[in-house]
Design a protein around this nucleic acid. Structure first.
Length: 283
DNA sequence: ATGGTCGACTTTCGA
């Protein structure tokens, strides 16, 4: 059985409820992980998503800022969350039961993250927000140490990581080396997290090393899409046990929905989708 | 040139 998982920083789910519904109707992902919902739990538009068959919804909201939500056609069980050092709502953790008849191959854990952006200066001594970003990444590392104590339970980690790790995840490696999101220190911390359990960055698995891949474009520049000054901040990782299930880049595999950046009143991020073929896993 | 534009919810913060 195949499961399609989408992640999207929506930058206010209430303002862009219809935008989300358009994406769900056009792409029909089994699961959509949202970040920056910017609402409290009771303000989340649950009914509209249930009406499209997304019956299983888990929300971690707060007033005005941040927040994440996972909406799914497949059953979800809520799992413990990462401790955010500032107690922000930045993580929704679930177990997805894709096919109960498949045994261990039929379920996986799905971790939906909104990593702090980190402010403007890549130095925690002068910028508390950058310190918070590094501390949050460290909390994620500790969390996954715990999740793996009983082995690889099929982990999928998605979300807005606010880091573009690869040279070709930004429009100019050289010009962004001092720009938070692509500084060597934070990239090293994210890479250490990824390597700690040999997670696979699914977008890069079938892409060429010199392919430019972006999922975010700033609001602050005109003609930003014409100049294509983007960054890849949104990621989908899988643990080693799930790597054989990762479908190749293409219409049914990993897809970055660049076109959504020029929809009416767009988010500054676009949806990223990865299909997993759980049937490809040996039992 | 240290700008620019969003969104939530205030007289400003976070991105």
């Amino acid at each position: 059985m195949k499961v399609s998982i989408a992640t999207w920083n929506i930058n206010s789910v209430r303002l862009r409820e219809k935008t989300v519904l358009r994406f769900l109707q056009e792409e029909q992902p089994d699961i959509l992980c949202l970040q920056e919902i910017k609402c409290q739990n009771d303000q989340f538009p649950t009914k509209a998503f249930r009406a499209l068959g997304y019956d299983h919804i888990e929300v971690a909201g707060m007033k005005a800022y941040h927040g994440a939500a996972t909406i799914s056609k497949l059953p979800l069980e809520r799992l413990p969350t990462v401790f955010c050092p500032l107690d922000h709502a930045r993580h929704v953790s679930t177990r997805v039961v894709a096919d109960a008849s498949m045994g261990d191959a039929g379920d996986f854990e799905l971790h939906n993250f909104y990593v702090p952006a980190g402010g403007d200066v890549a130095d925690r001594e002068v910028n508390d927000k950058f310190g918070h970003k590094l501390d949050f990444l460290e909390a994620m590392r500790v969390y996954f140490e715990e999740r793996f104590t009983q082995g690889d339970r099929h982990q999928v980690i998605v979300g807005d990581f606010n880091i573009a790790p690869h040279e070709n995840d930004v429009w100019s490696h050289k010009q962004l080396l001092k720009v938070v999101s692509h500084t060597p220190g934070e990239v090293a911390v994210l890479e250490d997290l990824r390597k700690s359990h040999d997670f696979t960055d699914t977008a890069r698995l079938f892409a060429n090393d010199d392919d430019k891949l972006y999922s975010w474009w700033s609001y602050r520049a005109k003609d930003v899409m014409a100049s294509n000054r983007g960054r890849r901040l949104d990621h989908i990782w899988v643990s080693p046990a799930l790597k054989p299930a990762v479908e190749a880049v293409g219409p049914d595999g990993h897809t970055i929905h660049v076109g959504a950046r020029i929809w009416d009143k767009p988010s500054d991020h676009v949806p990223v989708v990865q299909v997993l073929d759980l049937g490809a896993l040996s039992s």
